[in-house]
């Protein structure tokens, strides 16, 4: 599991300004954002979204904005969800305010329903962690096997897979040793 930290590097460690880190397995990873905002605009009029294709283009246009980190425009759910870097956030990346986002949407023909805006703080590192450890959404069996057959076979197949990976690695080490001997003078 990720442990998170907004720890800053000391000036001695790095000549530059403060950085934000995510931690995983005891290692630190510099990330561009810490606490950002997640805003959801619900109850968007379908007529304003036009259709699936125009909704997708609106998503593209939102993504063109530098402060927008992720955006989804769902025609089906009549909803726009945006992860963005808000004005005042403690990082050096381009920022936007909620007002600016609303203004942008207005120019795109979307009049947001003020009562249906939901905005909250969001830790960018959640997004980061989630992308690095995605959950399984399906388990399709190998070609020509049924789900039932696969359920029974899976443990054995996985065990064999592990073994063959080990063997492959050993073969590589053997090859490497030979190669090193042949190229002693260059290595």
């Amino acid at each position: 599991m990720d442990r998170r930290s907004t720890e800053k590097k000391s000036v001695e460690e790095d000549a530059s300004a403060s950085y934000i880190y995510a931690e995983h397995d005891g290692k630190k990873y510099r990330v561009p954002y810490g606490i950002i905002k997640h805003v959801v605009f619900r109850n968007i009029k379908k007529s304003e979204l036009v259709d699936l294709q125009h909704a997708a283009r609106l998503q593209y246009r939102l993504l063109l904005m530098e402060p927008v980190i992720k955006a989804t425009v769902s025609f089906v759910k009549s909803e726009i969800s945006i992860l963005y870097n808000p004005v005042g956030a403690d990082n050096s990346k381009p920022k936007a305010s909620l007002e600016e986002l609303k203004e942008f949407l207005k120019k795109e023909g979307i009049n947001v329903d003020e009562k249906s805006i939901e905005e909250k703080d969001f830790d960018y590192r959640h997004f980061y962690t989630y992308a690095f450890s995605p959950k399984e959404v399906r388990d399709r069996p190998p070609y020509t096997y049924t789900q039932e057959e696969w359920r029974k076979m899976k443990p054995e197949v996985m065990r064999k897979k592990g073994e063959s990976a080990k063997k492959k690695w050993e073969r590589f080490l053997e090859w490497q040793k030979k190669y090193e001997e042949e190229h002693k003078d260059k290595l």
Binding site: L52, A55, A56, Q59, T72, V73, S74, F75, V76, A131, F132, P134, K135, E136, V137, R138, D139, R140
Partner: peptide
């Protein structure tokens, strides 16, 4: 089986 960004892809 485990896509990194779990949305349906309707806006592909």
């Amino acid at each position: 089986a485990n896509p990194n960004y779990q949305v349906l892809g309707e806006n592909c």
